[in-house]
């Protein structure tokens, strides 16, 4: 529904921003020369797949909606667990897609989401463990280029449903008591680089910057996110449904919008548990 907004935002907007144009020839150096220091200072980062792995498409078919799946290789155990995951797209104007603070409550720190990628770029996931270890996995993604069709709709229309949420569990509860939860949030996530079709002016940035998920009052995950998350953000994550309960999603956007929804979770009805939303 909104993918054309973002598509335009990404393709046109990122072109306007022109970020990384020089670095394009040697994408790896952007990280070495700049990004590593910016986000991790002196931390020593091991590049391996013993802690996390990541799946991205070889080619980003749709620049506005590129699926990224991060898979944890270790369980969330109190003695050693993943406490933060950084997702970085070297060539995006704002390389930091988001920082996701994962908890023991997740069981496994897997994460799936959709992001905006316009250029040929490295995409990195960095896991920070509770003991200070940093592990990084890097994938190269080809942007497809191709053609675009701009947002022909109305930005005000697009904002009308902002903050609507849907949650469901997917599949069965696994042997380790975890189950996949899927949260969809309606929000155009304007990058601040797209153009208002009516006025020809730049649409100011308006995107989700904070996310907090709790289950029966226990924090599952919090996150700070930016403009590289696709419109209508979609997250998949593990949590432990136990005997059922309430999942609460709290979302804030960059213009002070705050949205909270709660969903009933009945694990025995896993696939159908679309759950009733109660707006608060």
């Amino acid at each position: 529904m909104f993918n054309r907004i973002v598509k335009m935002a990404v393709i046109l907007g990122f072109a306007l921003a022109g970020a990384g144009a020089r670095a394009e020839q040697s994408p790896i150096s952007v990280w070495d020369a700049f990004l590593k220091d910016k986000y991790f200072k002196d931390a020593s980062i091991v590049e391996d797949k013993t802690v996390i792995d990541m799946t991205t498409p070889y080619r980003a078919e749709d620049a506005a909606l590129t699926p990224v799946t991060i898979t944890a290789k270790i369980p969330q155990a109190p003695e050693r667990y993943i406490k933060d995951i950084y997702l970085i797209v070297d060539q995006n104007p704002e390389p930091l897609v988001g920082v996701f603070h994962t908890t023991l409550e997740m069981g496994k720190a897997d994460l799936a989401m959709r992001i905006r990628i316009d250029k040929y770029t490295n995409v990195r996931a960095i896991a920070v463990l509770n003991n200070g270890e940093h592990h990084m996995v890097t994938n190269y993604v080809k942007a497809s280029g191709g053609c675009s069709d701009p947002f022909g709709g109305d930005i005000y229309e697009a904002l009308k449903t902002a903050g609507r949420m849907k949650f469901r569990t997917v599949g069965d509860v696994l042997a380790d008591q975890t189950e996949v939860g899927q949260l969809n949030i309606s929000h155009p996530n304007f990058t601040g680089m797209s153009i208002n079709q009516r006025t020809g002016n730049i649409v100011p940035p308006h995107y989700i910057d904070k996310l907090k998920l709790t289950y029966n009052d226990q924090v599952i995950m919090t996150a700070e996110t930016g403009i590289s998350i696709s419109a209508d953000p979609s997250y998949r994550f593990f949590f432990k449904p136990g005997k059922g309960g309430r999942l609460k999603a709290e979302v804030e956007d960059s213009k002070g919008g705050r949205y909270v929804e709660e969903f009933d979770v009945k694990p025995e009805q896993a696939a159908e548990a679309a759950a009733t939303a109660r707006k608060s």
């Binding site: 335009m8 393709i11 046109l12 072109a15 306007l16 280029g145 675009s148 069709d149 701009p150 947002f151 022909g152 153009i195 079709q197 020809g200």
Partner: peptide, 14 residues
């Protein structure tokens, strides 16, 4: 007209 205007930069670049 809107579509062309919004795509102009993209066409010019790509």
């Amino acid at each position: 007209a809107e579509a062309i205007r919004a795509n102009r930069e993209f066409f010019l670049k790509d």
